Amino acid sequence: MKVRLASPKEAKRLWFIRNQAIRHGCKNSYDPQTICNWTPDEMPPSYIKMVENNPFFVAVNERDEAVSTGFLNLESNSIDAIFTLPEYMGHGAAGLILDAIKAEAKKRKISTLTLDSSPNAERFYQKHGFTPIRHDNYYSALAQANLACIHMKIAL
């Protein structure tokens, strides 16, 4: 598996990966209605702007198809989410994305990264050097709910 920058033309595929990862990975963290609201099949127009305006990475399979996504939010110096298709979970794709984001942040002289982890992903981020700061809630307009999260950080 290799990592490359995503193209805005891939936004619909990235949205699909996001939704599949949430629907599979978060089912023990959030109720079904919240997950349904949070993962609409139709991609919001603002999503493509995130792909265009931030270093958005994908891990690709042998057919160069994106199977995992994540990006460095340049506005907040944060990782906004790493999502992996369920059938590729546990194969190292998310770790490769995380390494690419960290390298990009260092290149841009960003000394600390933050993220808000869903409860199911907290251990993954801890394994990759992130430290929990506090348990919190994040209001998601898409989900129309407060989502439990763990605010985390790492010094680069």
Rank of each mutant, 00 (worst) to 15 (best):
S78W: 00
A94I: 00
L96N: 10
F71E: 04
S68K: 08
A66R: 01
Y88N: 05
E87M: 02
A66L: 04
A93F: 02
G95M: 01
N73W: 00
I79E: 10
G92Y: 06
I79R: 11
E75N: 15
T69M: 07
T69F: 02
A81L: 09
F83H: 03
G70N: 03
A94M: 02
P86R: 01
L72A: 14
S76Q: 12
L98K: 02
N77I: 00
N73L: 01
S76W: 02
E65Y: 00
A66D: 09
S76K: 14
T84Q: 02
F83S: 12
D99M: 09
A81M: 09
M89I: 12
E65C: 13
G95Q: 12
L96Q: 12
L85N: 13
I82H: 06
S76L: 11
Y88E: 14
P86Q: 05
E75L: 10
D80P: 04
G90C: 11
S76D: 11
L72W: 06
A94C: 05
E87C: 09
Y88C: 10
M89H: 08
T84G: 02
S76V: 03
T84W: 06
G70A: 00
N73G: 07
S76N: 15
S68G: 08
A94P: 06
G95C: 07
L98F: 02
L96Y: 01
L74Q: 15
N73P: 12
L98S: 07
G92R: 07
L72N: 10
D99H: 03
A66Y: 02
L96F: 01
D80M: 01
P86S: 08
N77T: 04
E65A: 11
D64I: 07
N73C: 14
I82R: 03
D80V: 01
F71K: 03
P86W: 01
L72V: 08
T84N: 09
D80T: 02
M89N: 10
H91L: 15
D64H: 07
I97E: 05
D99P: 01
G92H: 09
A94H: 00
D80Q: 02
I79N: 12
F83E: 02
S78M: 06
T84S: 10
H91G: 12
N73R: 02
D99C: 05
G95E: 09
N73F: 03
S78C: 09
D99L: 05
L74F: 03
A94N: 05
G70D: 00
P86E: 13
M89E: 14
H91C: 14
E87R: 01
A94V: 02
D99G: 11
G92A: 13
F83P: 09
F71H: 05
N73E: 14
N77C: 11
I82T: 06
I97Y: 07
E87Q: 08
I82V: 08
E75T: 11
T84A: 11
L85K: 11
N77V: 04
G90E: 10
I79D: 13
L96S: 14
A66P: 10
G95K: 03
